[in-house]
Simulated scan of single mutants.
Amino acid sequence: MSERSDADLLAAHVAGDADAFGELVHRHQSRLWAVAVRTLGDREEAADALQDALVSAFRRAGSYRGEAAVTTWLHRIVVNACLDRVRRRAARPAVPLPEQEPADHRDAHASTETALDVRAALATLPEHQRMALVLVDMHGLPVSEAAAVLGVAEGTVKSRCARGRAALLPLLAPGGNRSAGSDVPGMDPPAETKEAAVPTEGERA
């Protein structure tokens, strides 16, 4: 197993090392895949978006300047590839059903329904709020890293997350029996919603 850092691998790729980029991708592919799947909610689209992102990263490796971690740079490219696909289907957001779901597996069915509810609710959010929630609450990125990926201030990420959680709450708990925090893995209840009353700089789109 190579002990080279991510930056070393990227630099080696730019210098002509035929194996370096593949090693870098192998090291981080699972996290990048998770971001794509949770953002798009469709495995086929996520696979296409990830492929587009990796091709872009392969070709643009020479533009990396070391101003952010290589993982942050890669996440940003994946997020942008996903956003391109989100914009394309914005007029007709779809929630895919699982290909196989045994009718007698009630617990599994209930879990699937919950996941579909969450995906449908996320699809109603403004793009910038959705991406912040996916990165921070569903993928577990630190606010600082999510801010670097999205190219905004940390306060903006916090505000977007708070507003997104507040918007999800009535959608996921129409009868008062659910909370957005309980339905979305890793998502806490919107305790800090009040702090987001005033938009931060960059909270426009």
Results as ranks from 00 to 15, higher is better:
residue 172 L to N: 03
residue 21 F to E: 00
residue 1 M to Q: 07
residue 43 R to H: 08
residue 199 P to M: 00
residue 191 A to S: 09
residue 166 A to V: 05
residue 181 G to A: 12
residue 167 A to H: 11
residue 45 E to G: 09
residue 191 A to L: 12
residue 49 A to R: 07
residue 167 A to Q: 13
residue 100 Q to D: 04
residue 30 S to Y: 15
residue 58 F to Q: 06
residue 133 L to Y: 09
residue 160 R to K: 07
residue 84 D to I: 01
residue 163 R to P: 04
residue 78 V to Q: 01
residue 200 T to D: 00
residue 2 S to T: 15
residue 172 L to T: 04
residue 18 A to Y: 03
residue 127 E to K: 08
residue 69 A to L: 13
residue 53 A to E: 06
residue 169 L to F: 08
residue 4 R to A: 12
residue 59 R to Y: 09
residue 48 D to R: 10
residue 111 S to E: 09
residue 128 H to Y: 15
residue 1 M to T: 11
residue 183 D to T: 13
residue 114 T to C: 00
residue 81 A to G: 02
residue 126 P to G: 06
residue 52 D to I: 13
residue 78 V to M: 01
residue 201 E to M: 11
residue 116 L to W: 06
residue 66 G to E: 07
residue 93 P to I: 04
residue 15 A to K: 01
residue 98 P to V: 06
residue 73 W to F: 10
residue 153 A to L: 08
residue 85 R to E: 13
residue 179 S to A: 08
residue 161 C to V: 15
residue 52 D to G: 13
residue 154 E to L: 00
residue 25 V to F: 10
residue 91 A to Q: 12
residue 171 L to H: 12
residue 90 A to R: 15
residue 23 E to A: 06
residue 22 G to S: 04
residue 123 A to I: 04
residue 128 H to Q: 10
residue 26 H to F: 07
residue 75 H to V: 08
residue 76 R to C: 04
residue 12 A to K: 06
residue 87 R to E: 05
residue 163 R to C: 07
residue 133 L to C: 11
residue 127 E to R: 15
residue 113 E to R: 11
residue 179 S to W: 09
residue 31 R to H: 10
residue 29 Q to S: 04
residue 167 A to N: 07
residue 76 R to S: 10
residue 147 A to H: 11
residue 49 A to S: 07
residue 119 R to I: 05
residue 174 P to Y: 10
residue 128 H to D: 06
residue 147 A to G: 02
residue 179 S to P: 01
residue 183 D to R: 15
residue 203 E to G: 06
residue 118 V to H: 02
residue 176 G to Q: 07
residue 57 A to P: 05
residue 156 T to F: 03
residue 199 P to Q: 05
residue 83 L to E: 05
residue 55 V to W: 08
residue 177 N to W: 11
residue 120 A to I: 01
